[in-house]
């Protein structure tokens, strides 16, 4: 659910871009601040803020999109406050069920598109190309080569069969 909050931060960052009273840098500064929710500190991680900045640098949003997304972001914060969670990782299933429709609603009513699945959030540029996928930092880069393991299993089965056959012949 960290991913959903970050998605909403990205959408809100885009929303604030063309508000004359606030520069892009000021809005980035605002989003990088710590939110106090239920007495605990919530803050966007550095890697997600890097993507926020990147998204804003190459996507121009309309004022109406921005207003709408900003309102939805405030709703999301209220949802986080509604239960006694201590961090974004503790977001409950109930909260998740309320946050995902917000993301889908923004996607359907603004030019900012995103898709949410069980483990991944895909965010798209305004031209329809894929901007990023929000995932975990450290990947599993060892390949579980089930084909090799399966073949080895068959090889051992073959050895076992041959040995048994020899014993029977003896």
């Amino acid at each position: 659910m960290k991913k959903i909050l970050i998605l909403l931060l990205i959408l809100s960052l885009g929303c604030m871009q063309s508000i004359n009273a606030m520069t892009k840098e000021q809005f980035t500064e605002k989003l990088s601040q710590t939110y106090n929710i239920n007495g605990y500190e919530f803050k966007a991680s550095k890697d997600h803020l890097v993507q926020l900045e990147r998204y804003l640098n190459q996507n121009e949003l309309s004022e109406s999109d921005m207003d709408y997304i900003s309102e939805k972001f405030d709703e999301a914060i209220e949802i986080l406050k509604s239960e006694p969670i201590r961090s974004i990782e503790e977001v409950t299933i109930s909260q998740k069920s309320k946050l995902i429709p917000i993301v889908n609603d923004i996607s359907s009513k603004t030019s900012v598109k995103a898709t949410v699945s069980k483990n991944t959030i895909i965010i798209y540029n305004l031209d329809g190309t894929e901007f990023t996928r929000v995932t975990f930092l450290v990947k599993q880069t060892g390949r579980g080569n089930i084909y090799v393991m399966g073949s080895l299993g068959i090889v051992f089965l073959g050895f076992w069969t041959m040995i048994r056959k020899k014993k029977e012949n003896v």
């Binding site: 090799v148 073949s151 080895l152 068959i154 090889v155 089965l157 073959g158 069969t161 041959m162």
Partner: peptide, 13 residues
């Protein structure tokens, strides 16, 4: 069948 799989798997490997 097991022997056949053994030889095929060995060749594939």
């Amino acid at each position: 069948i097991a022997l056949s799989f053994f030889f095929c798997a060995s060749i594939i490997l």
